Simulated assay, not measured.
Amino acid sequence: MDGVRLAVTTLTVVPVRVGIVDRRTAAVAMTAAPAVGLPLGALLAGILLLLDAAGAPTLLAAAVTLGLSTLLTRALHLDGLADTVDALGSYRAGEAGLAVMKKPDIGPFGVAAVTLALLTQAAALTALPDAAPVAVLSTVCTAYGTGRLAISWACRRGLPPARPTGLGALVADTVPPVPLALGTAATVAISVPAVPGRPWQGPLAVILALTATHLLLRQCHRRFGGITGDILGASLELATTVALITLALR
């Protein structure tokens, strides 16, 4: 249960007290990450549907939903996206690139990445209120579950940390293949009702999101030698965005 509590308190603002924090606990936490995304997605889908029922314009409903999402996650993953893109945009490798990633400020690449991610996610969410409630619920849960599933894939066995300390060092190379496959299968199953009449589109969204994450992780591994906590956040936001784009094509 320490691992489950660590997943909750790392990926949300819920102040859960964790006992032992070690690599074994981290392995459970990163394996359970997709399960944290499902209730979060269900809550946000409910907010989106309530705002639509109250007569809010679709763009306003999408913006409020994303604002609540940012509050519930402390904007931690958006910060990771900004730092990772700044480091990649600096064209520096190794320790020099990691130094850029560790800076407390955000550069132009990071600002552009966060802005485009939020705009794209908002635009995708505006396509949802006209759909059936079950489809909206499945779509948002799929997007948020896939985003957290990307973290599980980033922490899979064989992908090392870029630094000897920090969150990346704690969680890297911890998620075994069988639980990872089960989490992926569960996320794919939840995605099937997302687009009525197209049962293949939800699974395709999961696959495309994980593919995009794989490309990002490969580039970060090549440039920085492994993963960091910031790269995990960037993976989450990239996967969520790609999944929402794919699911918005109705």
Rank of each mutant, 00 (worst) to 15 (best):
T240H: 11
G168R: 03
T126D: 07
T240M: 12
G80R: 05
I207A: 11
A87T: 06
T241I: 08
T115A: 14
G94Y: 13
P108R: 12
L182N: 03
V18T: 05
A127Q: 11
T146S: 01
A27D: 03
P34Y: 03
L170Q: 07
G80L: 08
R92E: 14
V114N: 10
L170D: 06
E95K: 14
A243P: 04
L72F: 07
D79F: 08
L78C: 07
V14P: 09
V13H: 06
L50R: 15
P104Y: 09
A143P: 00
L88P: 02
L71N: 05
R74A: 09
R222S: 12
L72R: 04
R198V: 15
L40K: 01
V136G: 02
D130S: 12
T240P: 00
P133E: 10
L182K: 10
A122D: 03
D86C: 07
A154C: 11
D83T: 12
A26G: 02
S235P: 03
G19Y: 14
C141A: 11
A117I: 11
D86I: 11
L210E: 05
G37D: 01
R92F: 15
V242D: 02
T115R: 02
V178R: 15
L44I: 07
T73W: 00
P39A: 09
D52I: 09
A185D: 09
R222N: 13
L247N: 00
S69C: 08
L216W: 01
G107P: 04
A132C: 13
G37E: 03
L247Q: 02
I190Q: 03
T146Y: 03
T241M: 08
R17F: 12
G97H: 07
T12A: 08
D230N: 09
A154P: 05
L167F: 13
G67Y: 14
L137D: 00
L48S: 04
A248S: 15
P133Q: 13
F224S: 01
G107V: 10
M1V: 12
A212S: 15
P34H: 06
L38V: 12
D230T: 12
A124M: 08
T184M: 10
H221T: 14
H77R: 05
V175R: 02
T58L: 13
L40Y: 01
A212F: 08
D2N: 14
A62D: 03
D230M: 10
P133D: 06
P34Q: 01
W200Y: 13
L125G: 01
L232Q: 02
V192A: 04
Q201W: 11
C141D: 04
L180A: 01
T70L: 15
L116R: 10
T115Y: 01
L182I: 15
A194W: 08
